[in-house]
Every structure is written in C-alpha cells, then in structure tokens.
C-alpha cells in the first residue's frame, strides 16, 4: 500500500520522474478525453508490468538473455496497445476518433516501458511490480485529470496571445511539478 502511494504521489511518474510527457501535454485539452486516456494507459501499463515480470523471470533470466529485455518488452506492449485500440474502436468510435494518434502512441509512451524496466531494475516481486505499475498508472491518470481541468480553465480565460495554447500548458506543468515537490521526502516512518 505504501509503495502504491509512494509511486503515485512522492515520485510521480510524470511530474517527478518526467516520464510519459507527450500524452500528458497532447491529450489533456478536455477533461473526459484525459480521463479515458488515463484509464487506457492504466490498463496497458498494469498489463505491461505483469508481462514484463513474467518475461523476465520465466524467459530472459533462465536463458540470461538480458540484452533482449527492451526489445521483448516493446513487442509485448505494442501487442497490448494494439489490442486496446481495437477494443476502443469497437466500443466507442467517438472516443477513438478523439484520442486519435495518441492511442497507438501509448506504445512509445516512456512511462509504460520505463515502469516495466524499473520493475526489473528494482528487483520487484510479482505483487510488488503489479502495485508499482498500478501506482505509477494511477499517478499518471491523477495528474492527467488535474492538468486537464487546469487547461479547461485556461481555455476559458483570456491568456495573452503569446502564451495561449501550448506555452501556458508547459508553464502550468512546470508549476505543477514545483507543487509536487512538496511531497519530496514524504515517508510514513
């Protein structure tokens, strides 16, 4: 449980470890698309960390094919993402049309691969890697939703033309990570 809160808040995937920034900036214009993007990434990320662990301990470690780790992880993640995209296209074409290019882009989302690799690097057991993956994904979704609400508020306020759109988005993201520094050194000892 502590690990879950730790990865979600203290070293949040996006704002502290700066992973997965491109969907974070790209899909956060509207609150509901950000939420669905977050959920899609949670689904993929948790599956990826589970698959990562299985691959590591049943295939790569016994045959010490460590060098294959990134390649095989990416293969599995791509498959899971492709599957997710098909499910979303089938269930709601509107959502698929809105998420657009960012859905297949989850494959290249550095948070997904990053978390899977971190799992192996930290030597997490099965349960730990699942909670780590879930915590990172929940952190990602939480921050996506907060950031989307902030950007929706910016959309209706008259931001000066020079800053409108992406620039103010980057500034707010910076300030948000400044705020998340407050959680630095948080330990429930």
């Amino acid at each position: 449980m502590l690990l879950l809160v730790g990865t979600a808040l203290v070293n949040n995937v996006v704002l502290v470890q700066f992973l997965g920034l491109c969907p974070f900036m790209g899909v956060s214009n509207k609150l509901d698309t950000a939420l669905s993007m977050g959920l899609a990434t949670t689904f993929v990320l948790t599956l990826a960390s589970v698959a990562g662990w299985l691959l590591e301990y049943f295939v790569l470690a016994p045959l010490d094919l460590g060098f294959l780790r990134i390649l095989s992880f990416i293969l599995v993640i791509a498959a899971v993402v492709q599957f997710t995209e098909m499910v979303i296209r089938k269930t709601s074409a509107a959502l698929h049309q809105v998420l657009g290019i960012f859905l297949p882009l989850i494959t290249t989302n550095c948070a997904v691969l990053g978390v899977a690799l971190l799992n192996v690097q930290e030597g997490h057991g099965f349960l730990q890697s699942v909670t780590f993956g879930l915590g990172a994904a929940l952190g990602f979704t939480l921050v996506m939703v907060i950031f989307a609400a902030l950007r929706e508020r910016l959309a209706i306020s008259n931001v000066p033309a020079a800053f409108a759109g992406a620039p103010i988005g980057f500034i707010v993201a910076g300030l948000l990570s400044l705020a998340f520094m407050g959680f630095a050194g948080l330990n429930f000892a």
């Binding site: 295939v59 045959l63 094919l65 294959l68 095989s72 293969l75 599995v76 498959a79 492709q82 599957f83």
Partner: peptide, 18 residues
C-alpha cells in the same frame, strides 16, 4: 540461437492473437 528462436515465436504468437 535461442534469442532468435524466442523472438520469432513471440512475434508469431502475438501476431496470431492479434
């Protein structure tokens, strides 16, 4: 050899599933 073998089988398996 085993690396090539593993990757091809995984590729085939996942491709078929998709």
């Amino acid at each position: 050899l085993s690396a090539i073998f593993i990757l091809t089988t995984m590729g085939l398996l996942l491709g078929y599933g998709l």
